[in-house]
């Protein structure tokens, strides 16, 4: 029954696109958020950044206890040090970003009209490094996750605002991300939406599946299973492997576009990262 209902919801979501063939992020946003709000009427929009924790009292209680002294605290402190450190040329990350990089995470991923590509905050950090004569950092974990944890923390509570500009390449990237999100892949033949839209709030063995709405807001996050920090792209790779599909490269267009679409669907929700999850 649920699947039938969902199929209907997905159909309802796309009439704009069908009518004009031009991606319509604004109507998608309304339909995407409306789907969750209608399906779970007791959960207000902003609470979706809590991931699975509005679906299980017991998990919520454990999370609250973990958040008493969040396990990402070491990463946050380390990230701040890295962010504030001077490059060999005397400059620092602050010079690469608007507002010195403070309180800007809610605007990423961002479309870059110069290159015609989507730039995640992690890729922007690496661009900054390269511009200052340094090597790129791994986008999945380690120092990059720590820097992103700090930058995201300075945006905590700020409203996610990833507006897709009316630019053919930006709209194409958005559309490619949307396509990726709803496409089934891997030996298990799951799409992102299979778990995080259709089965959102249900159990997958011991875990409650987080709804796709708000899911990006807590990244980077400390996962108990990892025992350390990971970025959104690390999670993409993990999910792809879990459905037995070959993951894409961390800086691939596929993951940039996916992050772009997925984050834009949480427009209007608050940043809640860095976060902690099982």
């Amino acid at each position: 029954m649920k699947f039938a209902y969902l199929a209907l919801a997905l159909l309802v979501m796309t009439p704009g696109a069908l009518a004009s063939n031009k991606p319509d992020p604004a109507s998608d946003l309304k339909a995407f958020q409306g789907y969750f709000l209608k399906r779970f009427p007791k959960i207000p929009l902003a609470a979706y950044v809590n991931g699975p924790y509005d679906f299980s009292k017991s998990e919520r209680a454990q999370w609250k206890q973990i958040m008493e002294f969040p396990p990402y605290q070491f990463a946050l402190d380390h990230g701040r040090k890295l962010f504030e450190a001077k490059f060999p040329n005397g400059k620092s990350y602050a010079a690469c970003f608007p507002h010195g990089g403070i309180g800007i995470a809610q605007n990423y991923p961002m479309f870059d009209p110069k290159t015609g590509r989507v730039v995640t905050l992690g890729i922007a950090v690496n661009r900054c490094r390269v511009a200052n004569g340094l090597g790129k950092l791994k986008l999945t974990t380690g120092p990059m996750a720590d820097i992103l944890a700090y930058m995201t923390d300075t945006s905590r509570g700020k409203t996610i605002d990833v507006t897709v500009p009316d630019n053919p390449k930006a709209l194409a990237a958005y559309q490619a991300g949307k396509q990726y999100f709803y496409s089934r892949r891997g030996q298990l033949n799951f799409s992102c939406a299979s778990c995080h839209v259709q089965a959102a709030g249900m159990h997958l063995r011991g875990n409650v599946l987080a709804p796709a709405l708000g899911i990006t807001a807590s990244f980077p996050l400390y996962r108990s299973k990892w025992g350390n920090m990971g970025t959104l792209v690390r999670r993409f790779i993990g999910c792809n492997k879990k459905v037995r599909s070959v993951p894409d490269k961390p800086d691939s267009a596929a993951y940039r576009d996916l992050a772009y679409f997925l984050t834009s669907m949480s427009d209007g929700l608050p940043i809640a990262g860095p976060g902690a999850r099982p």
């Binding site: 008493e68 002294f69 070491f74």
Partner: peptide
């Protein structure tokens, strides 16, 4: 690293620590 919060209130002190 050891992170410590210690708060005095109501005649007693609550200590929380996170140890790397």
């Amino acid at each position: 690293q050891i992170l410590v919060h210690a708060m005095a209130a109501g005649g007693s002190t609550t200590v929380e620590a996170l140890v790397k």
